[in-house]
Structure formats: structure tokens, C-alpha cells
């Protein structure tokens, strides 16, 4: 069963740079053709100092920058074959652009059993700041853990 005492625990912070090659790989995978994400002039015309990242890319940066992307599973006592992504939220405070170096500070915000213990929801909230110390975003993901219930 999931360890509920992990609520409030901080996970390892992650530092990640927005790298052009990785970002190109992401855009190519998604077929992202919006010039604001690839053309510095289009980005400037939209008011950005450099090309911004697509709206879900913060999630990728945190995983790519992590030494142990699934650390929380070890902490709460679950494994990869048991989990599904339940919900995801981004709150954007300031632009994130090519060349930025971001710091992610995740913590386990909540753990709740559902359906008589057949599943557990774990919420991980992450504050994101940039190289200037500006608060650029908050992220929250809800992970569904399908518990192995004895029949």
C-alpha cells in the first residue's frame, strides 16, 4: 500500500536548461509548426525576448533534468506498472524561453485513497523559477496508483 506519511515531503530539486536541440526534437515529434516556437523574429513580434517553449514542455524539462524522474514512486512505495496520469495543471507566471535555466522544486502535496483503497491519488506540486530568480510557473500533477488489492 501507498505510504501516506510522505505528504509534505520535498523531492529532489531539478535544474534544467532549455536546450535548442531537445526543443527541436519535441517540436518535430509533435509536428509543431507555429513559428513563434521556432523563429526568433516571430517570437519577438509576439513580445518575447527569445522563442518560448510550448505549454506542456515544463513537464518534459523537469523529467529530462531529473537524476531519478520516478523518485516519488520509491518514496510512496509504488512502481511504474501501477501508475496512470490522472490530472495535470500548469499556471504560467512569466515566459520560459530558449536558453533559460530553470529550477524545479517538487513536493508531495496530497495522498488520498479512492474506491475503498483500490486506487490512490498522489498530488505533486512543483514551483518553477528561472536563472534570475523569477517565479515562472507552478505545476501540479495527479498520479493515479492502481493498488494491488488481494481478491
Amino acid at each position: 500500500m501507498v505510504d501516506h506519511s510522505a505528504v509534505g515531503r520535498r523531492l529532489a530539486s531539478v535544474t534544467a536548461r532549455v536546450e535548442p536541440g531537445q526543443l527541436r526534437f519535441f517540436r518535430a515529434t509533435l509536428g509543431e509548426a507555429n513559428p513563434v516556437y521556432s523563429d526568433a523574429e516571430a517570437a519577438k513580434a509576439a513580445g518575447y525576448a527569445a522563442t518560448p517553449v510550448p505549454p506542456t514542455y515544463l513537464f518534459c524539462l523537469e523529467m529530462m533534468g531529473s537524476e531519478h524522474a520516478f523518485e516519488f514512486l520509491d518514496i510512496i512505495g509504488a512502481d511504474l506498472s501501477q501508475i496512470l496520469h490522472g490530472e495535470q495543471r500548469f499556471s504560467y507566471k512569466a515566459p520560459v524561453m530558449l536558453g533559460d535555466t530553470l529550477r524545479f522544486e517538487p513536493r508531495i502535496a496530497a495522498i488520498t485513497d479512492k474506491k475503498g483503497g483500490a486506487m490512490t491519488l498522489a498530488v505533486i506540486e512543483t514551483r518553477v523559477t528561472n536563472q534570475h530568480g523569477a517565479h515562472v510557473a507552478d505545476c501540479a500533477r495527479t498520479v493515479v496508483i492502481l493498488n494491488k488489492v488481494a481478491a
Binding site: N34, A46, Y48, P52, P54, C60, Q88
Partner: peptide, 30 residues
Amino acid sequence: AHGMLVMACLGQALTDAVPPQRLRTFATRF
């Protein structure tokens, strides 16, 4: 599929229609 792959598609559809600098929050339930 990764839930986040599907959310990335939705994000692309969103910023095709709305300039990304206007986005304040974006949330989904899978």
C-alpha cells in the same frame, strides 16, 4: 499513449488559436 503526449496535442491546438503569451493556466484531466 503518454497522457502528456495527448495534452501536448491539445496545447498545440490551443496556441494555434490563442497567442501563447496570453495563456495563464492550462489544466486537464486524463
